[in-house]
């Protein structure tokens, strides 16, 4: 019983960090541009496919894996720059419904492109050699790859949080998010800051795609699964709040894995119930007010 629970908690943490890797970019772009990007999960999927195209399905070395992931980040970041140029910039002053629907259209477009380029087949990619082992600690099996995902989530969080809260770049970005007009008056180039935020957000999606590629069944439906998970994390954490998204992701992972133990007949539903309850009871998220 104890073993079952400790395993559930461990797998919950893994799922939570995976969700955070996707949610990070989503909440970043919302915090600064107030755009909820429906296509974020699709670009995450695109990152996974790009990494797959570089690596193939066999185990690669750790260095090759990380480099391929970085390449996916660059490719998807480039797509983000194009998206900002063609879509976000044009719709900046229009009703938010239109931006929502535009990102939804983008979701369809990219999914269609992925289907044409890579087909509909499911693919399974093995993790790098170093991460293929499993450790046996305290009675439970711990896959090295899961530890890697948790570590990656924490590293991405620390970099983002430090970058946003401590560096001058982060402070500039926050000032634009808080009051774009005043920032402009003070001589900050809002356009550049916003474009940079979009590019970084998409890069994060691409990198998350690469990092989470192993052990997933890679298919054009991959984006949907993670998109809803990331949406939930972003809403529960408070829209635009990176710290909130981090805590909410962990919480979600734990909710999901604990409910798998308690309610094995109803897979997947607990996250949506959590989402609905949170929107109704605390729509501003767990950390209200904080950016």
């Amino acid at each position: 019983m104890l073993l079952e629970w400790s395993f559930a908690i461990f797998s919950g943490l893994t799922l939570g960090m995976a969700a955070f890797l996707v949610a990070a970019g989503l909440t970043l772009v919302f915090g600064i541009l107030k755009i909820l990007n429906f296509a974020h999960g699709t670009f995450f999927m695109l990152g996974a496919y790009v990494t797959y195209s570089i690596l193939g399905t066999e185990s690669a070395s750790m260095a090759a894996f990380l480099l391929a992931t970085l390449a996916a980040g660059v490719v998807v970041g480039g797509a983000g720059w194009a998206t900002d140029l063609v879509i976000f910039r044009r719709l900046r002053d229009s009703d938010y419904h239109y931006t929502l629907i535009a990102t939804f259209a983008l979701l369809l477009l990219i999914t269609g492109l992925v289907k044409i380029i890579w087909g509909l087949d499911f693919r399974l990619v093995r993790p790098p050699e170093v991460l293929e082992t499993t450790w046996f600690i305290g009675g439970i099996f711990i896959p090295a790859y899961s530890v890697f995902v948790i570590a990656a989530g924490i590293v991405v969080f620390l970099i983002l949080d430090f970058g946003l809260q401590r560096s001058w770049i982060g402070k500039t970005v926050q000032s634009v998010a808080r009051d774009p007009w005043m920032a402009e008056v003070l001589g900050i180039n809002n356009r550049v800051v916003m474009t940079a935020a979009v590019v970084v957000s998409f890069m994060l999606a691409g990198i998350a795609g690469g990092l989470l590629l192993p052990n997933q069944s890679l298919s054009p439906a991959l984006g949907d699964v993670f998109l809803l998970l990331a949406f939930t994390a972003v809403i529960i954490g408070g829209l635009g709040n990176v710290r909130g998204a981090f805590i909410a992701s962990i919480l979600l992972g734990l909710i999901e894995s604990v409910s798998t133990v308690l309610l094995p007949d109803l897979p997947g539903i607990s996250i949506f119930v959590a989402l609905i309850v949170f929107i109704l009871v605390r729509p501003q998220g767990i950390f209200s007010g904080a950016q």
Partner: peptide, 22 residues
């Protein structure tokens, strides 16, 4: 007839409408 084409067409049309002819 072709997998993926319908998504591209639908997404592309929707995007074009929003950007050019709302």
């Amino acid at each position: 007839t072709l997998d993926g084409v319908s998504e591209i067409v639908v997404g592309g049309i929707l995007l074009t409408i929003i950007l050019i002819a709302p």
